[in-house]
Amino acid sequence: MVKIAPSILSADFANLARDIQLVEKSGADYLHIDVMDGQFVPNITFGPSMVSAIRPVTELVLDVHLMIEEPERFISDFIEAGSDIITIHVESTQHIHRALQLINQGGAKAGIVINPGTPVTHIESVLELVDLVLVMTVNPGFGGQKFIPSCLKKVEELVKLREINGDTFEIEIDGGVDDQTAVACVAAGADVLVAGSYVYNSTNVAERIEKLKKAAANG
Rank of each mutant, 00 (worst) to 15 (best):
V90H: 14
E91N: 11
E91L: 14
E91A: 12
E91C: 04
S92A: 15
S92L: 09
T93D: 11
T93H: 05
Q94H: 15
Q94F: 13
H95C: 05
H95D: 12
I96E: 07
I96N: 06
H97E: 03
R98D: 14
R98K: 14
A99L: 12
A99D: 13
A99S: 15
A99P: 07
Q101L: 11
Q101G: 06
L102V: 06
L102D: 07
L102Q: 15
I103Y: 11
N104Y: 03
Q105R: 15
G106F: 08
G107R: 00
G107M: 01
A108Y: 06
A108W: 03
K109M: 03
K109H: 07
A110T: 02
A110G: 12
A110S: 15
A110K: 13
A110R: 13
I112Q: 13
I112M: 15
V113N: 13
I114G: 09
N115T: 13
P116G: 10
G117Q: 09
G117M: 04
T118E: 12
T118W: 08
P119W: 11
P119H: 06
P119Q: 02
V120W: 13
V120E: 00
T121S: 15
T121Q: 15
T121M: 12
T121G: 10
H122S: 13
I123L: 02
E124H: 06
E124G: 05
E124Y: 08
E124F: 10
E124Q: 14
S125Q: 07
S125M: 09
S125A: 07
V126S: 10
L127P: 14
L127K: 15
E128Y: 14
L129W: 00
L129R: 00
L129F: 03
V130G: 07
V130T: 12
L134A: 14
L134N: 14
L134F: 13
L134S: 10
V135A: 03
M136N: 12
M136H: 06
T137M: 10
T137S: 15
V138H: 04
V138N: 02
V138K: 03
V138Y: 03
N139T: 07
N139E: 09
N139C: 01
N139P: 00
P140I: 00
P140D: 03
P140Y: 01
P140C: 01
G141C: 06
G141V: 11
G141T: 01
F142H: 04
F142D: 00
F142T: 02
F142Q: 02
G143Y: 03
G143H: 08
G143S: 02
G143Q: 00
Q145H: 04
Q145D: 01
Q145T: 09
K146N: 09
K146V: 12
F147T: 10
I148V: 10
I148H: 10
P149Q: 11
P149L: 13
S150N: 09
S150G: 08
S150K: 14
C151G: 00
C151S: 12
C151W: 01
L152C: 02
K153D: 06
K153N: 01
K154G: 00
K154E: 04
V155Y: 05
V155M: 05
E156A: 09
E156S: 04
E156W: 01
